[in-house]
Structures are given as C-alpha cells and as structure tokens.
Design a protein around this nucleic acid. Structure first.
Length: 299
DNA sequence: ACGGCAATAT
DNA sequence: AATATTGCCG
C-alpha cells in the first residue's frame, strides 16, 4: 500500500514537469504526408481536443497503476509509451474494453525514417529475446494441440499463432523445450510438474486432440481438461493487432474458416493457402516494439 | 529449406 | 533460469 502513494507522488512530480498545453505541438499536425496516408489507406486522425488528450493521459496513468499486467510480448522493460498496445488478448478477459482509436504519437521526435530500410531491417535487426508469457504459451499450446503433434512444426505453429514478430526460431526453440516437458510428464504419468516448470505446468498438456497423428498410442494423458469435443478452439485467431485490409470472399466473416485437422488425408490445401496469404499480409513489420528496445537507431 | 535434437552460448 | 544459437543429421 505504501507503494501506491509512492507511485502517486512520482506521477505528480512527473506531471509537474510537463510542458504546458500551449507549449505542445498540436496533435492535429499530421505525422505523415497525405499521400502516404492514402497510399496505405490510413484514415486521417480525428481532431483531438486538449480534453481528449487529458482523458487519454488519465487512462494511461490508471492503467499503469492498476494491476501491472502489461501483456507486452517481451518482458524486461516496457519502454515509455510502448505498452500502448497490448500484444494478445484472449476472449477470456472481459475487463479490457479499450478499443478506442490508436493515437498518441510523440510529436517531439517525429522520426520519419522508414520504408525500404525499416522493412528489410525487420528481419536483420536483432530482436530482444522473446519472453514466453503465459498468454503466449497458451496460444502456443492451443495451436500445437490443434495441429496434432504430427503437424506441429515450427513454421506452421508460428503462422497459426499469428503473433506479430514471432519468428520460426522462437517457436522452434520453445517447441523443443516443450516436447521435452511433455515427454517428461508422460513418462511420469502421475503428475508432478517440477517446480522448474512454471510456465508449462500452467497449461494442460495437449490430450492428443484428434484421430490422426500420433503413431504409438500411449499418449492418452488422463489430463484432458481443455478441449470440449464440439468446440475446437477458435483457430483463426483474432489478429492481435495490425490492420488487415483483406477481402477474402470464401470464408470471410463467419467466425471460423479453419477446420483444423485437414492435412493428413484430405486435400483441402485450399483453406490453408488462403490462410497463408492472410498471414503474409499481417507479417509486415510496420511500427512495433522491436526497434525501440535498445536501438537508438538514426537513419 | 525445413525439422529435430543435443550441446552450447548469452 | 530462460532463450537463442549452432552443429549435425535426416
């Protein structure tokens, strides 16, 4: 409890040091050219009054205080305004109702070096190490479960997880560990998640989800807490973020365009392909946390 | 190119 | 301790 007042003091002090409204560059000033905006189908920023800004500020502050649950993809530090966008949400978190317009750029450093370089740099630049938060891991497990262990290979997992910035290597590494864990757990069938298994223990191990896959059938773990038969996890995960101006007419709005277990015998590469194309649309780097981490990159 | 796995590095 | 990277192989 003492902590909170400390934070309050800090915030107050910080607020006192802020420039007055009159000193600030008007938010109405566009950060990108009109051409660029229209080229990328970015709708123009709505006008913001000082009141709007204040409200946003309040909301930020309160969210900083309230349950420090920044769902940042990467642990470590949340640099400054970087936590404005949460990485992934589950349908099971009714508390977050913020779906206002994305905004609040920093007028101070209008850093407009992008295009060519930043997009190619996305793959070149060294990214901060990934932190497998429970949310992320959960997603991972769900995807693996749905693929069936047979098809759960890094690339596919990565694609279906649909998490911005997640690399194949990230998944491969995690998968390797995960497999070891699962094996370890099956060997010692009666439960005993070692204390070192924090993360893994928190998510029930995939109960051998579907008919195919698995060649030797000793995988039936008594633990089948998830996966209610008729309700396969909503696979086409809601794109955590990113706009995707895709108009695919085959399977559009009806909730699920994914029927999980195709691969082995069926030839519905159809769907998978459509998926892939979507995935590629969202893979694009645009602006996100990675650059910020430790790279005072001048361009 | 990809995937799996163990060893090793950070 | 958690991830990343590397090397070797199928």
């Amino acid at each position: 409890m003492g902590e909170e007042s400390k934070i309050d003091d800090g915030v107050a002090e910080w607020e006192a040091g802020l420039p007055s409204l009159d000193d600030l560059t008007p938010l109405s000033q566009s950060l990108i050219s009109a051409e660029l905006a229209s080229a990328f189908k970015i709708s123009p920023e709505p006008y913001r009054t000082a009141l709007d800004v204040d409200r946003a500020s309040q909301s930020t502050i309160s969210s900083l205080r309230g349950a420090g649950s920044s769902i940042n993809l990467f642990g470590g530090h949340v640099d400054d305004n970087a936590m404005a966008e949460a990485e992934l949400e589950e349908g099971s978190d009714p508390k977050k109702s913020r779906r206002t317009d994305p905004a609040a750029e920093d007028p101070a450093k209008t850093d407009n070096c992008m295009d060519d370089q930043s997009t190619s740099a996305a793959k070149t630049l060294k990214r901060p190490r990934l932190v497998w938060t429970p949310q992320l891991h959960k997603r991972f497990v769900e995807v693996v479960a749905h693929l069936g262990l047979k098809n759960a290979v890094p690339k596919t997992i990565m694609q279906l997880m649909n998490v911005e910035g997640l690399t194949r290597e990230n998944v491969a590494s995690h998968l390797q560990k995960y497999r070891l864990y699962v094996k370890r757990m099956q060997g010692l069938s009666n439960e005993g998640p070692s204390p070192s298994d924090h993360l893994f223990a928190s998510t029930p191990v995939p109960p051998q989800s579907f008919n195919e896959s698995s060649s030797h059938g000793s995988v039936g773990n008594g633990n089948s807490g998830n996966n209610h038969a008729g309700m396969p996890i909503p696979m086409p995960y809601p794109p955590p973020q990113q706009i995707m101006p895709v108009h695919m007419m085959g399977m559009s709005t009806n909730g699920h365009g994914f029927h999980g277990y195709e691969s082995a015998h069926s030839h519905n590469h159809h769907y998978q392909q459509q998926y892939n194309s979507i995935m590629q649309q969202q893979r694009d780097w645009s602006g996100n946390k990675y650059h910020l981490a430790q790279n005072n990159n001048k361009c």
